[in-house]
């Protein structure tokens, strides 16, 4: 019984994923759902480095931007399929993660967090001034015939929904197997007691780097998806510091280092953003941020482990 409950819960969750769009047929709820899974996936990516390995990265939006820009540039300038662009983005992001991570993982705590902000901002300034990549104007992706091959759909958001669900499930699977594997234990050891982990012979820097690469790859895939979904990208919409912060907020709300934490976080966070935007309009500008800020501060003070624990504890109580 003890092991079956999560399986049943997950199957239910999976069915919901498939049938959601059949219940919600209008574009807006579907858009919200797509954004929920996009953010949940980015959250899973951040959770690997921030939640499991305990290294607070405020620069993950850089990987998102690299993913978005890789596929967009290849498509606009060379006519290469976004799917290939996605792979290129993944490789470039992994490379960036190594270049940034190798020196930065010597740093600890605040020093590392600030270094990732600096790197993220440097990448953004570089893109803002890079004419080939559209500089401050951004890139409009060409409207092509809709097909899976072109990764563009104009009549319905449904294909986008299923693609992002697939990406989300992939990320969830990666995170699940990571959590159960040797890497997962190493990451948590590094988070909880770096000196102890080191004395047990774990190469801390190497495993932090692995966590960072995994995180970068997942985030980069989301970037390509975002570019193909919105069809317009700009440095400040893809790699602003605020983007990185939003990713962290989701994980923090949901639960750091919990497999489903980012999902819970995204389910709370994204509809709140979208709804305040729709109902309050420009009058409510900033209102969503005030609400998150209060949630974050309360969570960080009262429940640093996030909201996921609340639910699982209740589940344990009723069993």
């Amino acid at each position: 019984m003890k092991n079956k409950l999560p399986v049943i819960a997950f199957l239910l969750f999976f069915c919901c994923l498939i049938f959601f769009p059949l219940v919600f047929k209008t574009p807006f709820p579907r858009h919200v759902l797509i954004m929920v899974f996009l953010y949940a996936t980015m959250g899973i990516g951040w959770n690997i480095i921030g939640g499991y390995a305990g290294q607070v990265s405020f620069g993950n939006a850089a990987f998102f931007g690299v993913g978005a820009y890789s596929s967009a540039i290849l498509l606009v300038h060379f006519g290469i399929s976004p799917w290939v662009g996605m792979l290129v983005g993944v490789l470039l992001s992994a490379l960036l993660a190594v270049i940034v991570g190798y020196p930065c993982f010597r740093l600890q705590g605040h020093y590392f967090a600030i270094a990732t902000i600096a790197v993220g901002e440097i990448v953004m300034v570089a893109f803002l001034n890079w004419n080939f990549a559209g500089a401050a104007v951004g890139i409009y992706l060409p409207i092509l015939e809709q097909s899976l091959k072109n990764f563009e759909f104009h009549t319905s958001k449904l294909p986008y929904y299923y693609i992002i669900v697939c990406i989300f499930l992939f990320a969830l699977a990666v995170c699940y197997f990571m959590e159960k594997s040797r890497w997962g234990y190493y990451f948590r050891a590094i988070k909880n007691d770096p000196d102890g982990a080191c004395s047990l012979g774990i190469n801390i820097r190497k495993y932090k780097l692995y966590a960072f690469i995994l995180s970068a790859v997942i985030t980069s895939i989301c970037g390509t998806f975002y570019a193909q979904y919105i069809l317009y990208i700009h440095p400040s919409s893809t790699m602003d510091l605020m983007m990185s912060i939003q990713i962290c907020i989701i994980v923090l709300i949901g639960g750091l280092g919990k497999l489903f934490g980012p999902v819970l976080g995204a389910i709370i966070f994204v509809p709140l953003t979208e709804l305040t935007r729709v109902y309050l309009g420009s009058q409510g500008q900033g209102m969503d941020f005030i609400i998150y800020a209060l949630i974050i501060m309360v969570i960080a003070i009262m429940r640093p482990q996030g909201l996921w624990g609340v639910f699982s504890r209740e589940a344990r109580g009723t069993r």
């Binding site: 607070v56 967090a113 900033g286 005030i290 800020a293 974050i296 501060m297 960080a300 003070i301 640093p304």
Partner: peptide, 28 residues
């Protein structure tokens, strides 16, 4: 409340403060 809390909480509290002040200014 977070002086002796783990560093992650400390980072997120002041980050929450950042978002709060910026959001408040945008709203007002």
């Amino acid at each position: 409340p977070i002086i002796n809390a783990p560093m992650l909480s400390q980072i997120f509290v002041t980050f929450g403060l950042l978002i709060f002040l910026r959001g408040l200014a945008q709203f007002l």
